[in-house]
Nucleic acid binder design. Structure first.
Length: 621
RNA sequence: GGUCCCGUAGUUCAAUGGAUAGAAUAGAAGUUUCCUAAACUUUAGAUCCAAGUUCGAUUCUUGGCGGGACCA
């Protein structure tokens, strides 16, 4: 049980016995005490004033006195300032917490809860390489998956690859026209970039042809329809749908090039999927859904044969679900896929990591599923994230301002190398170790940068700031971890006795840690006499204790930035402690041991938290 | 035109309705005979505007202004 819950429970108990009213934890707030006041946690008293008809000070005095009398081993002191009851928690509580958990690599993580969640993310198109926006998506999807796992969920990571349609045909046509049978191998180009280049070539040529037609006196609308390259592309889509062998062959070849390129990028950024759906396999799934909708009279047919759903009663529009020529639209395919996912895995929740430009689409998707009475309808959740913009404005492919994912990763890793070389702390590393370190630091910086912001919000990508390795960054946290590890290595080598002593104490104290709140027994007395906690020691412990609640919150909000903020603050607090107090030269053996445990637990939690962001932490840097 | 989202230090981000609105960075001034200075300490600097609800509003409501997305 977290300390906040313990306090809530104690306060509730005391309130009930004092006033004989059915109080619950919801009747008052418990916050961490602000640093300028004495105490660890604070009960806000205002909300109790009405029901008790007493002044805040009055309530606080009664409550504080009763808490200390009832739980003398838990609460040690209290003070009241302007309606806030500040409570001090016994050092024993913190010390017990530390001794019980400092070596536990799973600290904070929850037991399996038997629930199954699918997280769909990444979902690329196969006509161009990944860019900055995809990175936010990928990092979010990965991190949310890890956070859910840490909270006891079974997670299935999935992706839907948009591998068919007019946009793919554009790249194919351009390749036929301009490539002279060039391949990624023959040109030494990464496959996804290779295909993406032809997509760009298509647009250039298309634009040229449209202008040519306009110059000949054609109107813009007609020119855009009649441009030969566009007509050829549309024909190719029809050929694809009919399964014309040479078109299918080319399509397969070019998609393979793209996948080979994606694989390199995915591997580099450390992501993978449990199941990958391909649109070419799923795009017909919606067909039977349309029939079902008609049967249930949820859909209706217009005179031209197109099929619609009327959502005006729900504040939305009429929405097309099948064109008059019988071809399906995205929404229908998505309903089909949603149904397939549920059928395959019987998932309790289906999370879609998709940009907020699809908010409307996803709302419609869920609404239609509901109206069709599909069992998965209520389990659909759109994890909507904001766009990544540049300091100069939005990324525009037309203006060539799109930040390419591979370029960015390379740049970050190169920057990590520069910083590391300039500092010269790891000159004894092997080339392989150095490469691994640069990757960890460069990718860590990038992931942290994109995950530290609330996913819902549009964020600005500032190139100069993103390669900064100081302040609120991944490398800052990584550095704190590496520095702790350095100490632990040194002190472990220095005294063998110290190490075993730490281990022994742990085993011995485990029992004490299991005692209930308020019953913390005097069997901790031996640890207290010499080791009244110093403010900075306690501050680190306070934050370590909050890790469990932080994990819960991150999962509830599906928000990795909660974790990023947490690990940063923990690292910061530890750094303050570190410069102020020596571990190696602590005043007593007990103190040294306590600080060693404190450092060990901090390193564990930093590592664990960063892992939830998909970021590794080095032993040295 | 309709629906939705967002406005916090120069800049990038925080803050379940709670105390004097926190950080980072940029600026100013400092810290290394001692566990990694990718660190630490000090300093200056902000809630778009106007009403309302409340003991208390950055947070909730309404109306403006400004920015963005989507739907036709």
């Amino acid at each position: 049980m977290s300390i906040v819950s313990s306090i809530q429970q104690s306060v509730t108990n005391v309130l009930i016995s004092l006033h004989n009213q059915p109080f619950t934890a919801k009747d008052f707030q418990v916050n961490q005490t602000k640093p300028e006041f004495e105490g660890d946690y604070t009960v806000v008293l205002f909300s109790l004033v009405k029901s008790l008809k007493l002044s805040p000070d009055n309530i606080g005095n009664q409550l504080g006195t009763a808490l200390i009398n009832t739980y003398p081993n838990f609460f040690t002191k209290f003070n009241i300032i302007k309606g806030f009851l500040n409570l001090s928690i016994a050092d024993d509580y913190w010390i017990t917490l530390l001794q019980k958990n400092y070596a536990d690599n799973c600290y904070g993580k929850k037991e399996m809860n038997g629930k199954k969640v699918m997280v769909e993310y990444s979902s690329p198109n196969t006509n161009k390489p990944l860019h900055l926006g995809h990175l936010r998506n990928n990092f979010l999807g990965w991190s949310v998956s890890e956070i859910l796992k840490a909270n006891g969920y079974e997670v299935i990571k999935s992706a839907i690859v948009n591998d068919r349609g007019i946009h793919i045909c554009k790249s194919m046509i351009a390749w036929q026209l301009f490539a002279n049978n060039a391949t990624p191998e023959s040109t030494q180009t990464k496959g996804d970039h290779f295909v993406g280049d032809y997509y760009v070539k298509f647009n250039d040529e298309y634009k040229r042809q449209v202008e040519e037609l306009i110059n000949k006196g054609t109107t813009k609308d007609i020119a855009e329809k009649e441009a030969p390259i566009m007509k050829a592309t549309q024909q190719m889509l029809l050929d694809w749908e009919e399964g014309k062998p040479e078109v299918i062959e080319l399509w397969k070849t070019m998609n393979q090039w793209v996948y080979a390129g994606f694989d390199v990028t995915y591997k580099k950024i450390g992501t993978n999927f449990d199941i990958v759906y391909y649109e070419s396999n799923t795009y017909l799934l919606g067909k039977n859904i349309v029939q079902l909708g008609l049967d249930k009279q949820v859909f209706f047919k217009k005179e031209d044969g197109s099929i619609w759903i009327d959502l005006t009663a729900d504040g939305l529009d009429e929405k097309l679900v099948q064109r008059k020529d019988g071809t399906s639209v995205y929404i229908t395919q998505d309903i089909g896929l949603a149904d397939l996912k549920y059928g395959q895995y019987k998932i309790d929740k289906s999370i879609y990591v998709i940009g907020n430009e699809q908010n409307y689409h996803m709302k419609v998707l869920q609404l239609i599923c509901k109206k069709l009475g599909m069992p998965n309808a209520d389990n659909i959740f759109h994890l909507s994230y904001g766009m990544v913009e540049l300091t100069s404005g939005k990324m525009k492919s037309r203006e060539g301002t799109v930040v390419d994912a591979d370029d960015l990763v390379d740049e970050m890793v190169a920057t990590a190398r520069q910083h590391t070389e300039a500092l010269g702390k790891v000159k004894d590393f092997t080339p392989d170790e150095l490469t691994a370190l640069y990757d960890t630091l460069g990718l860590g910086a990038m992931k942290f940068y994109l995950l530290r912001v609330d996913p819902k919000k549009t964020m600005v990508f500032n190139p100069a700031e993103s390669i900064d390795f100081h302040g609120f960054t991944g490398p800052f946290v990584q550095y704190t971890h590496a520095r702790i590890k350095s100490i632990l290595r040194k002190l472990a080598g220095e005294t063998k006795a110290g190490e075993t002593k730490v281990g022994e104490t742990k085993a011995k104290e485990t029992k004490a840690g299991e005692t209930e709140v308020g019953e913390t027994k005097a069997n901790n007395a031996q640890t207290t006499n010499s080791s009244a906690l110093l403010p900075l020691e306690k501050e680190v412990l306070l934050q370590l204790e909050q890790y469990t609640d932080t994990l819960t919150q991150a999962a509830a909000e599906l928000n990795p930035s909660v974790i990023a903020n947490y690990v940063f603050n923990l690292a910061k607090t530890f750094n303050s402690f570190y410069v102020e107090h020596s571990i190696a030269n602590a005043a007593s053996a007990e103190k040294k041991q306590l600080r060693l445990q404190l450092a060990t637990m901090t390193a564990n939690v930093l590592k664990s938290g960063m892992q939830l962001l998909g970021v590794g932490v080095p032993e040295r840097m």
